[in-house]
Amino acid sequence: MSEKYNVLDLFCGTGGISYGLTSADPSFQTVMGIDMNKSACQTAQANHKHANIVCGKIEDIDPATIKEKIDVIVGGPPCQGFSSLRPSRGKNLEDPRNSLYKSFMQYVKVLQPKVFLMENVVGLVNANGGLLLEDIQEGFDKVGYVVDWRIVNAANYGVPQKRERFILIGIRKDLGFTEVLFPTPTHYFSGKVIGTKLKDKHIFNTDSGCPAVTVWDAISDLPSIKSGEEATHYQSTPLNEYQIERRKYSVETVNLHQAANHSEKMLEVIKHSGSNINALPQGLVSSGYSSCYSRLGKDDVSTTITVKFTSPASSKCIHPLDDRSITPREAARLQGFDDHFIFCGSKTDIATQIGNAVPPILGSAFANVFLSILRKDI
């Protein structure tokens, strides 16, 4: 029997990263998760049945009270103050949410896992002129870790979405590693990205492996429905490997495939929508970002799924063919969640959980890198 490695998921939300690790290899077992959002904790508990999911503020929970040996810590401290979606990113460093990385660091210091992964928004790289990132790296160095970071694109690892994230990995110094490895991309993608001036820190793959999974690859087995409608059965058997994987533990029924009930005015906007807001006839809407009121490209990778994926006025979320925004099930597919994954809470809660999650498939991509560290066979 192979050795088990205990995973602690901080700021766990739905538990997407740890779910990805445990799905990729049974050697990983999530023993604990912490988050302050009640419905997200219910979701994490429903999908990590043997874990202790604690609902509370991480800064109020003493890591010294955790008695299990922790091998891996993963998590994404909220850093809304410098999200790449906010034009003023980096100016709100006094925002208390931006210091929660210190709580993450304290857990690492006390529990001394062999390896940890901290994920965040790309905007962290340039926050406060790069000084915040320097502070984070120096802090982990002082508590005994070799660290390095990269900007990764979920599309390069089999997620049908060009979701870019900052990933920092730390390895405990006594294990003898002098450099940090990152997973090799499995899929190629060459669309527009946020990027960073530090090209050596950005993992690109535009030509090797498999083509990126498209929107239609992800959702084409889900039935066509209209605004306000719901469907509970699949339209067809799985049509490709991606759909086979997402449905491997599901029966004939599908849940959360319910379309938002749009107003007549919004339906008129949706009917004219195209790849960006400029596709609309002049005067149909008064304002909005270029990506608002626009359709996802059928044969393209999805843009980043946000918590507003049912609102065309807030994001690029209109179905490629149907005149409606995407359903929670379609959003979950684009985020790489398996269809049997259980979501708890209200419709708004579930939309928030899906939009905020780290795609489990991205978590899975780090499994082999972590195992090579934990088993010291690099």
Results as ranks from 00 to 15, higher is better:
residue 71 D to M: 06
residue 7 V to K: 01
residue 189 F to G: 00
residue 227 S to G: 10
residue 148 D to F: 10
residue 340 H to A: 09
residue 4 K to H: 09
residue 225 I to D: 02
residue 68 E to A: 14
residue 253 T to I: 11
residue 211 P to H: 14
residue 106 Q to L: 05
residue 87 P to W: 02
residue 72 V to H: 05
residue 188 Y to P: 02
residue 61 I to D: 03
residue 103 S to C: 08
residue 284 L to A: 00
residue 305 I to P: 02
residue 34 I to E: 00
residue 96 P to R: 07
residue 110 V to E: 13
residue 60 D to V: 04
residue 303 T to A: 12
residue 228 G to T: 13
residue 113 P to F: 07
residue 302 S to Q: 01
residue 361 I to S: 01
residue 345 G to N: 07
residue 191 G to M: 09
residue 316 K to C: 13
residue 195 G to S: 12
residue 338 D to A: 14
residue 11 F to N: 01
residue 162 K to P: 00
residue 303 T to F: 06
residue 59 E to Q: 15
residue 374 L to W: 00
residue 109 K to G: 06
residue 239 L to A: 06
residue 29 Q to S: 12
residue 45 Q to S: 15
residue 217 D to C: 12
residue 8 L to F: 13
residue 62 D to V: 01
residue 7 V to N: 00
residue 319 H to M: 09
residue 278 N to E: 05
residue 52 N to P: 04
residue 178 T to Y: 09
residue 184 T to G: 00
residue 355 G to T: 11
residue 304 T to Y: 04
residue 175 L to A: 01
residue 297 G to K: 09
residue 117 L to N: 01
residue 137 Q to L: 15
residue 38 K to E: 14
residue 210 C to L: 15
residue 283 G to I: 02
residue 78 P to K: 07
residue 57 K to T: 07
residue 149 W to C: 02
residue 283 G to E: 05
residue 234 Y to H: 11
residue 210 C to F: 15
residue 334 L to T: 02
residue 166 F to N: 06
residue 236 S to K: 06
residue 228 G to A: 13
residue 68 E to I: 00
residue 225 I to N: 03
residue 15 G to N: 11
residue 134 E to W: 05
residue 155 A to F: 10
residue 248 K to I: 14
residue 199 K to A: 13
residue 344 C to E: 15
residue 65 T to A: 12
residue 154 A to T: 07
residue 211 P to K: 14
residue 10 L to G: 00
residue 28 F to W: 05
residue 257 H to S: 11
residue 238 P to E: 10
residue 269 V to G: 01
residue 163 R to G: 02
residue 252 E to N: 14
residue 307 V to D: 03
residue 219 I to F: 05
